[in-house]
Nucleic acid binder design. Structure first.
Length: 521
DNA sequence: TGAAATGTTGGGGCG
DNA sequence: ACGCCCCAACATTTC
């Protein structure tokens, strides 16, 4: 399949399939289908706009293919998010005089059926980068063309298309810094596209399932914490971006590492589902860097900063860079979602202590910083990134449990679960990936807590049972004197667990296992 | 986007 | 006054 290398605006695949002539209905031009995937937004949506610009009626559709079709089917938390997000998108489309058609079933059959029903002349979608979905889509395209429908696809979810970027040796980059520098030297993303003003409705709408019929919401009602923490949808995504830029960007460099503060953007789930595009974020950042608001409300160019590109070095943009890097790596190393990039790690002596895995998942390891993170994850579907690194290091290095167990758990529980980023994160933490943390970089859950949650606010929020411990002991209850524990109404092993492993000896064991791996060559 | 062990330095207490 | 020890503070090395 030929991908559209395009950041300058709308262009279409060069290799067009010869158009099949169809008898044209005289009354109304044939409709265009806008197939929504992980791009659940109206603004800056190339596929949607291409469907609108065909000047006929537009049929927006979402296809739920529950078996995942060889990819990773969304986990429980992602399904919850998807449900809410589809509801939001549907409402937004209605406000434009349109609808969202919901279908379920194998993607090709479902789309072919819809094309036949509606006599659609064109179907547009934004590409997804996950390797197995790409393979699948590559077959989808000619099959749909063969049924007489034109196909247009776009790259809308990344700033930089992975396919042709290589280092000087002609190989894919494996280190972040040169990769991102290479991108920054070339990136000049065009202005985000506006949301279409209106979508022309077809003469008659095809049938749609009701949202509830997709059965995305959990049967058992465990989603209360998610509901309290999140409002999915494009509108909220833009609101969060704006408030982040106004209130947090200035202090991001320092506060992004502090789970006790609200220092991060929390845009990750919105980005994953495409409720906001990286291009929109890029431009919002650029705008903010070039302009300052005067007190009288006038906006003028800040000559000291206008035209300067120092904002491109900003920490926040670098995080978007890591997102690009994750997708880039998964594109070039498509097996890394399950196998270590550094092959020698497949011989690492992992062990699988089921009780330990369970303790980790439940937030019962006896290390408060780890447990707080795991409970935040379980309750809200999200975990602060600093804490993700710490809990991952703990699972992989203190417990020596395979990193793939971690990816699975995160996949099921995170509302921002994203194959590329989950893969990068875990391979990074396990030391077996590209530009990964060296294996011997083993986080100490106590000192990490003391450093990044100095007053214990974060830990107390998620572990009320140890909330009465003084700061000195909040990150290491096991070391507190008996009378301090009694004072705080804590009985170790009953109200809060003893550490399931001793960090210092677990560290020694991990280093020895790693040394053995290296000796084996 | 580490932590722990080891090395170095310099000030202060003390004989 | 001086050497010695201790140890904190910081730097470097190692895993």
């Amino acid at each position: 399949m030929e991908r559209v290398a395009d950041h300058a605006g709308l262009r279409f695949p060069r290799r067009q399939f010869p158009r099949v002539k169809q008898p044209r209905a005289r009354s109304q031009p044939r409709p265009a289908i806008a197939w929504f995937r992980n791009d659940l937004r109206l603004a800056d949506n190339r596929a949607l706009l291409a469907a609108v610009r065909a000047h006929g009626p537009v049929i927006p559709v979402f296809v739920w293919a529950p078996d995942g079709e060889g990819a990773w089917p969304p986990g429980a938390a992602s399904c919850w998010w998807l449900h809410q997000s589809l509801g939001e998108l549907s409402a937004a489309l209605q406000a434009k005089g349109s609808r969202l058609i919901l279908r379920a079933g194998p993607t090709l059959d479902t789309l072919r059926g819809l094309i036949a029903e509606t006599q659609a002349a064109l179907i547009c979608w934004n590409q997804r980068g996950e390797p197995r979905l790409r393979t699948r889509d590559a077959k989808l395209e000619p099959a749909l063309r063969a049924s007489g429908c034109e196909v247009k696809t776009f790259c809308s979810s990344l700033l930089h298309e992975p396919a042709n970027t290589k280092n000087q040796a002609g190989k894919p980059f494996q280190v972040f810094t040169p990769f991102w520098k290479h991108c920054l030297d070339r990136l000049e993303p065009s202005t985000p596209l506006p949301a279409p003003a209106r979508l022309k409705a077809p003469a008659s709408w095809p049938t749609s399932l009701r949202l509830a019929e997709l059965k995305l919401e959990p049967v058992v009602n465990w989603a209360g914490g998610l509901r309290a923490a999140w409002q999915p949808g494009e509108k909220t995504a833009l609101k969060r971006l704006r408030s982040f830029l106004q209130q947090r960007l200035a202090t991001y460099e320092v506060e992004r590492d502090r789970p006790d503060l609200a220092g991060t953007s929390t845009l990750s789930p919105y980005l994953h589902f495409g409720e906001i595009s990286p291009r929109q974020i890029w431009h919002a950042l650029q705008e903010q860097a070039g302009c300052v608001k005067a007190t009288r409300g006038k906006v003028f160019r800040d000559s000291s900063r206008a035209g300067s590109s120092s904002w491109r070095q900003s920490r926040f943009l670098t995080e978007l860079g890591w997102r690009e890097f994750a997708h880039y790596l998964l594109y070039h190393f498509p097996d890394t979602d399950s196998a270590p990039l550094r092959a020698e790690f497949s011989r690492f002596p992992w062990r699988s202590e089921a009780r330990w895995l369970r303790a980790w998942q439940r937030g019962l390891t006896g290390y408060p910083f780890v447990d707080a993170g795991m409970r935040q994850l379980w309750t809200t579907g999200w975990m602060h990134n600093r804490v993700r690194m710490v809990v991952a290091s703990f699972l992989v290095k203190d417990l020596l449990i395979p990193w793939q167990e971690g990816t699975r758990w995160f996949w099921d529980t995170l509302v921002d679960a994203d194959l590329a980023q989950n893969t990068l994160g875990w391979q990074w933490a396990a030391g077996c990936g590209a530009d990964a943390a060296p294996f011997f970089r083993i986080f100490n859950p106590v000192t990490q807590g003391e450093k990044f949650d100095p007053a214990g606010t974060y830990v107390r929020r998620w572990l009320p049972e140890i909330g009465r411990l003084p700061n000195q002991w909040i990150h290491k209850p096991y070391a507190a004197p008996a009378e301090v524990l009694a004072q705080a109404s804590i009985i170790l092993g009953e109200t809060y667990p003893e550490p399931i492993v001793s960090h210092s000896s677990a560290r020694e064991v991990a280093l020895e296992a790693y040394a053995k791996l290296k000796r084996a060559g």
